[in-house]
Design a protein around this nucleic acid. Sequence first.
RNA 1: AGGAGCGUAGCUCAGUUGGUUAGAGCGCCGCCUCGACAAGGCGGAGGUCCUCGGUUCAAAUCCGAGCGUUCCUACCA
Length: 921
Amino acid sequence: MKKYSPQEIEQHLYENWESNGYFAPSGNGKPFSIMIPPPNVTGTLHMGHAFQHSLVDALIRFRRMKGDRTLWQMGTDHAGIATQLIVTEQLQAHGIKPADLGREKFLEKAWEWKHTSGGTISRQLRRLGASLHWETERFTLDEGLSRAVLEVFIRLYDEGLIYRGKRLVNWDPELKTSISDLEVESEEEKGYLWHFRYPLAEPVNGQEYVIVATTRPETMLGDTAVAIHPDDERYRHLVNQEVILPLCERRIPVITDPWVDSEFGSGCVKITPAHDFNDYDMGTRHDLPIINIFHVDATLNEKVPEQYQGLDRFEARKRVVEDLESLGLLEKVEEHTMTVPRGEKSGVPVEPYLSDQWFVKIKPLAEPAIKVVEEGDIEFIPKNYENNYFAWMREIQDWCISRQQWWGHRIPAWYDNEGNIYVAHSEEEVRSKYALADDLPLSRDEDVLDTWFSSALWTFSTLGWPAQTEELEIYHPSDVMVTGHDIITFWVSRMIMMTLKFMGEVPFRKVYVTGLVTDSEGQKMSKSRGNGLDPLDIIDGITLDDLVAKRTENLMQPRMAKRIEQMTRKEFPDGIPTYGTDALRFTFYAIATRSRKVRFDLNRVEGYRNFCNKLWNAANYVFVNTLDHNHSGDAMEPGPVDRWILSELNNTIGAVEYAMDTYRFDLAAKAVYEFVWDELCDWYLELCKPRLADPNTTEAQLRGTRHTLLSVLETTLRLAHPYLPFITEELWQQVPTTIRNSGETIMLQGFPEARDELVDEEATADIAWVKQVITGTRNIRGEMNISYGQAIPVKFYNGNEQDKARLAKYERLLEFLIKAESFEWLDPSDTIPLSATHLVGDMQVLVPMSGLIDKEAELSRLEKEITRKQKDKERAESKINNPDFVAKAPHAVVQKEKDKLTDLVTALDQLEEHKSRVAAL
RNA sequence: AGGAGCGUAGCUCAGUUGGUUAGAGCGCCGCCUCGACAAGGCGGAGGUCCUCGGUUCAAAUCCGAGCGUUCCUACCA
């Protein structure tokens, strides 16, 4: 058998699975479905995806093996803004402006890009082992999904739940489109607070000007009022006065409004209704003029004095400040930290901007969506994310769904010359629906819908809606949605709302919220930080130079390259070795705790690669000892060791099952890991060796043990398959069909079932005793520095009948594993030789000291043990001497404590006695 | 400002309904090529479970306050 080498097995196994159609739902079991959160079609797989999809694949493989009719629906998202941005950049690299190209040509380019790069993410998902149902793959812009989108839009419009309106929206001047509240990211930044003097039209009581403070001087060109708090005594005399807006020389009123915070700045605030959300509200309240001073790219328009027209907003800011200063109107400038809203995709500050947009009236949709979570029809895991959800949903604002872009679902609305709006699937339908004359000129709305509008329909649109398909009938609602917490508001909440509205049922029953994958320092992985890892580089490995090149290419800030290179060379001096998919996946399960941050550390991957290797070698050992021998047949006598491991395996199956039911992937991984490494490898395989090697073992006994070896291995492989799909398949194929089902793939075998009859208390207690005897002598060897080359005499003293029976039963096994020269029971009348000792219950295991044992070492070993036990004894005593404890604690707890104390007392007696005899030496 | 989470070994984290000798991985120290595995084996060191107070016979676990930290939402002229 070859060495464990993931790259040799993984890829061809996946191709085999896929070509055999194993990923398709099959059978007549209970339906189980998960819809993939559609990745950006032109994107690549990042760690967050790899993490999420690994978790889902384990769930899917688990349910499939359990016999469910399991569908993992594949699909991709057109990712409107992100994709349009990439295509635009590509065109610009060739000196082409999208505007020169025009809408149709641009879209052709975008589709071309989709076709060339769309395969990347699929290839990556395959490398991850994701058992997705590829045959029904969907795309948010494909014909079927587009039909669903139009249908939803039209129905909502006809119901009055979608409307068009002129509103202040978040505007991205770089992308020249509106974006939703969620697509705005606010970060604290350092800036300035400028205090300006606005001259009063008529001096009042000798006061000639008021001071207003602003962080955005350029917007003053659109001011239409100055506001103060109605109770502010300092300014009471200015109410109903006017100021002359500098630079514009416009007379604007001083108004009062309770929103004004008298404590901030001068307590007097300039009002720019067209360029600030609060000012807009106030402008509406006070019927102020709304002067929009920006073009779509946030350069100043013709509403401002000529010298500022055409200036960029930041340039205008500088000029306004200079000009006011030279007019003597700059009172002072303070440093000021504030949160600057930036476009998620473009990174530039977002501008509140007045424009015509489409909105979803969201409250009526939100109410039922809140209710289903309150009533438990949808359950979040962990549950506390429901708080986030409720908080968002209860405060939810109408959703701006129009984007001034080309790549996306074009809004199915037409206008006549009077600006009347007509909404239907097509222009023909518009004419018939609204009974319009054939020659009435109509023009279609230029905008497209927010990407999340189509994603909101994902669970049912992928299954064929609005057609009433069989798939929809069987697989909807889906069972669980696995996603990051950052996407609850963007997507999860909107899916719930839209699905309730159009399907009359929930989109999924559970939302499993994963943590956010960060680097080993807890930093978010990002291109600009240069700390990102490509999952494929962990699977396949990468040289240091390639990794550095990858991390430093196409940086937004090229000056960071040097730091990123240094950091990378320090962290990965040898690059990244080939770890394989199984190791990467197992790492994901192991770190999938309930924590909201998930630190990814390559040391963990290495550890789990080693785990795969361990499993590989263990299987190798099992095969070597069984395949060419009789390992099954009528007469099989498994021994207690065999019964013990079956019992342990059975417990592990239960633990894994429980972990999967509660979405604790970390605990599932831990149970598998500990069983394989600690019980199977460290103990069972070792405990079998004496039996297999002993010439006195009967054929039936040999068969029993060999059969158990193979069958435990085979069951373990099925147990581990959802987490380690490749290595388990590779090994399972080598298990003879005398042991396993004759099926073609482990993927479609039954998941192991916990069976009560396999629990064997007697064998478990026996082996626990055996382990203690072995561990005790190992401890003596370790501390006394007695090498395993040297056989040791072992004596037993003060054992009870059970100890004696057990020693007789396991004598050969113990001799073999302890490397004992001899075993001997000592009678109470015997002179006890000076020895190193270890207690197993009341029984002393003694290794005589002659020539082997260092007196001082044994004394300090004893001292340590005595101190430990003494502490335990004191603790137990204080409990038992407490009458309240004895009176109030459950009887079992009290009894347990009493037993413990009795044991400790005898143990201490023996240790003390032993110590004094060693000391007397 | 409001809300939420977290604080356990040097590091990263488990620890179910309160009763465990408080665990794991990595790291650290010592020994070992013994026929599955050095990507390994065996042994070992290492903890004021953030602090204070409360509830309880009993608190890492429940409650309150504080400190530290992270995140979300809103606002910041």
